[in-house]
Write a protein that binds this DNA or RNA. Structure first.
Length: 511
RNA sequence: GGGCGUGUAGCUCAAUGGUAGAGCAGUGGCCUUUUAAGCCAUUGGUUGGGAGUUCGAGCCUCCCCACGCUCACCA
């Protein structure tokens, strides 16, 4: 039972709940009213004040009680609502002894309250609601952690507050109720998604939704989650990317499509990996990776401008400028500069591995040439790309869905965008030759060990779709969570996901 | 999965192997324009869980749990 878990503090609150019920008061009334937010009420008062208007601003406010200072015959309180915070003033002369006693006896910090009256300015100058009537809207049986806040020059200063990351993530509702900065992160997140959507809509893209439950997963090299449909007696995979479905839509004549949604990857969890994460992918007929590159830097700069009002951001102690154009560096050239190895001189994994060993670099045994290059990229290039950088022209064998560079059989037209030392997005000229695509799937099967869960399974229906003809196109994918990390200056992906994945707690933690 | 670290009151944190404390919150008082309100008094602990060493463990050892950092992994 819930009650069994209550601490002494919580039992005290429960007793108050019973006591107010005994007086005929309702701790969880059904109806509530809110005519203004705190901000609207304050703004309305200030406008009237400036206009010299005597008409009182009558309002009904509702919110969570965050501070209560009772002083015998008067009391001050602060409540939080979606507009911010506002002070309430209670006076026994206006409310009567019974209501004043109610406030003192039955209300706790964290309770939801509704209060009606008119706005005025206290002697200290704070615009405040002069309460003529109030009622409890919802009793909080558990106390919120944060204790004291202070307004200094209009800025909310929080003294001791909830900071334990485990409690913050497991009980995000408490974190949000107590930490205004956390609410801000998710407002920025919403604004970011809105901006991306607007940018794509404005460029004549249409938003679509494709299956999350898929009989064959693909479009990325990642391990999937598996689930099962009982009635169909069929195993299904949670998607690891949207790619193969979105490109089927290009075949169908939807020339510009995008999807914003959740991907699921059954892999390690880290400060930049959550098992489920939000992805944006778009596919653009008659474009190629160079057009997509231009478009990408415009889109990200637009989002930053919309959300923050600037393209200059601060991340991990570094100032980053998202203003286009971004740096562009060919992968081969980048590796020559960073490692002294020219990958073009090493057409095989064996040759490249030998070159790495000659430089004192260890290679993971059995890696393909592409995987070796990818490892070099991750070790020597990625961490240094603090300012936005496009790295382009990737090895073919780690890019099975990208189109070859004309005249170059080992290099594909692909780029990745890096910001803040982190991979942000990935794009290429889409492979639309069904025969080549089939060959790539087969090569995957040959190059990757059969027990490698990251191999790309053959998707016959996708090949069938390509066989009807897919226009040449540029395609793009971005980790929305990582973009939000950049725009909010958070170093951990968990900070920008409302409910990041945490291990379940044991039912019985006494063992 | 490996390494390192953390876990003490509702929250934030103290505590040489020797009586588990503080601030805030809570509770009882005083207080008619306060605002981290103030003053007086006061409650609150399975020190993450289990075992061991010891006369004695929050502290030392081992096992387990969770979280954080990091490595591996992550087209």
């Amino acid at each position: 039972m819930l009650e069994d878990s209550f601490t002494e503090l919580e039992r005290t609150r429960l007793e108050k709940l019973h006591a107010l019920q005994a007086e005929g008061l309702e701790p969880y009334p059904t109806r509530a009213e809110q005519t203004h937010t705190s901000q609207e009420a304050i703004d309305a008062f200030i406008r009237a004040e400036e206009a010299g208007d005597e008409i009182p601003i009558k309002v009904t406010l509702a919110g969570r009680l965050r501070a209560l200072r009772t002083m015998g015959k008067i009391a001050f309180a602060h409540i939080d609502d979606r507009g911010g915070r506002v002070q309430l003033f209670f006076r026994i002369n206006d409310l009567g002894e019974k209501k004043m006693a109610e406030l003192d006896k039955f209300f706790d910090l964290g309770d939801f309250i509704q209060a009606s009256g008119y706005m005025f300015r206290t002697k200290r100058g704070e615009v405040t609601l002069y309460v003529e009537d109030f009622k409890l809207l919802a009793k909080a049986l558990r106390p919120l952690p944060a204790a004291k806040d202070e307004m200094v020059d209009g800025e909310l200063v929080r003294h001791a507050t909830l900071s334990d990351p485990e409690t913050r993530y497991r009980q995000r509702y408490v974190d949000l109720a107590v930490n205004p900065d956390v609410q801000k992160i998710f407002k920025v997140r919403a604004a970011t998604v809105r901006a991306l959507r607007q940018f794509l809509d404005d460029h004549d893209f249409i938003e679509v939704e494709t299956p999350i439950l898929q009989p064959i997963y693909g479009g990325a090299a990642a391990k999937p989650f598996v689930t099962h449909h009982n009635q169909l007696h069929q195993d299904l995979f949670l998607r690891i990317s949207f790619e193969l479905y979105l490109k089927r839509l290009l075949v169908g004549g939807l020339e510009r499509v995008y999807e914003i949604g959740r991907d699921f990857r059954n892999e390690g969890v880290s400060f930049k990996h959550n098992p489920e994460f939000t992805q944006l992918e778009f596919y653009w007929a008659y474009a190629d990776y160079l057009k997509v590159m231009d478009f990408t830097e415009q889109m990200i700069a637009f989002a930053a401008e919309q959300v923050l009002g600037t393209t200059k951001i601060s991340f991990d102690g570094k100032e980053i400028d998202l203003t286009p154009p971004w740096n562009r560096l060919e992968l081969r050239q980048g590796l020559i500069e960073a490692t002294g190895i020219d990958i073009d001189e090493h057409p095989t994994a064996e040759s490249l591995e030998a070159a790495m060993k000659a430089k004192g670099l260890t290679a993971k045994p059995g890696s393909s040439r592409g995987k070796l290059i990818d490892a070099l990229l991750g070790d020597f290039l990625e961490p240094n790309f603090i300012q936005p950088t496009f790295l382009y022209n990737y090895p073919r064998d780690i890019s099975p869905l990208a189109k070859n560079q004309p005249g170059n059989p080992t290099v594909v037209e692909r780029f990745e965008g890096f910001v803040g030392g982190m991979e942000l997005c990935n794009a290429f000229s889409e492979l639309n030759d069904p025969l080549d695509q089939e060959q790539r799937f087969l090569e995957m099967g040959r190059d990757y060990k059969s027990d490698d869960e990251e191999r790309h399974p053959m998707d016959d229906d996708y090949l069938n779709a390509l066989s009807y003809g897919m226009p040449p196109a540029g395609g793009f994918g971005i980790g929305v969570d990582r973009l939000v990390m950049l725009l909010t200056g958070r170093r951990s992906i968990r900070e920008v996901i409302l409910f990041p994945h945490l291990r379940s707690l044991a039912e019985d933690d006494s063992n």
